[in-house]
Amino acid sequence: MDNSKIINISGLVKQFPMGNNNFTALHNINLAFIKGEFCGVVGPSGSGKTTLLNIIGLLDNPTSGNADVLGHNANDLSVKEAAMIRRKHMGFIFQTFNLLPVYTVFENIEFPLLLLKMSKNERDKAVMDALEWVGLTDKVKSKPAQLSGGECQRVAIARAMVKRPDLVLADEPTANLDAEHSHNILQTMEKLNRELQTTFLFATHDEKVIQYLRRKITLDDGTVAGDITTSK
């Protein structure tokens, strides 16, 4: 694999059983992503964006074809190995934030570091750094229910970024946010992308997100309909 390529997808097909037949969500996808990209898979609902993101996130397997993610072929990985790669190298940002409701902001961000068995001092420092990135140092002890949608998503970004992963996968990260909060968190993510060279891959159909993307891959009915890179 090319050193700069962190994701290499070739001939990827994903089908789901539907009654007696199979529904093909992705047809013969060929894509490559290099380190430090700020890119997105765009397209209408049902075009296969989330399915592609799930395969890249090693949460799902291709029906056929290859998906090399961070040097590992998704087809060859056991469930446990996939979990280990996600734990060490990937961050996830979800449309509905998916924060753990009984934890404080600090504990939510600390969670991935607990899985990595980092020492308390290291964890504390990393969490405080992440809180500074997203500007939430004053909300350390708040619970998710006490935060606005924008703040929740910023906590989710901090949680995804705290372990400084190689790849962050964001599925419709602004779908539940108003315009102001959307721009705010996109600027935060773009800044982190530039400063930490973390690869960001979005699945979105939100124009507000699309205007920030440096590379836009359009999916239509499970096939790549366009792949445009812009210089920003």
């Binding site: 996130g57 949460l59 469930v79 446990k80 979990a83 280990m84 996600r86 734990r87 060490k88 990937m90 996830f92 979800f94 509905t96 998916n98 753990l100 409701p101 969670f111 991935p112 899985l115 949680r159």
Partner: peptide
């Protein structure tokens, strides 16, 4: 369930 899915996405094994 969402929390369970989040645990898995964050790198926990199902076990």
């Amino acid at each position: 369930q969402k929390e369970i899915g989040t645990y898995v996405a964050l790198g926990m094994t199902r076990k």
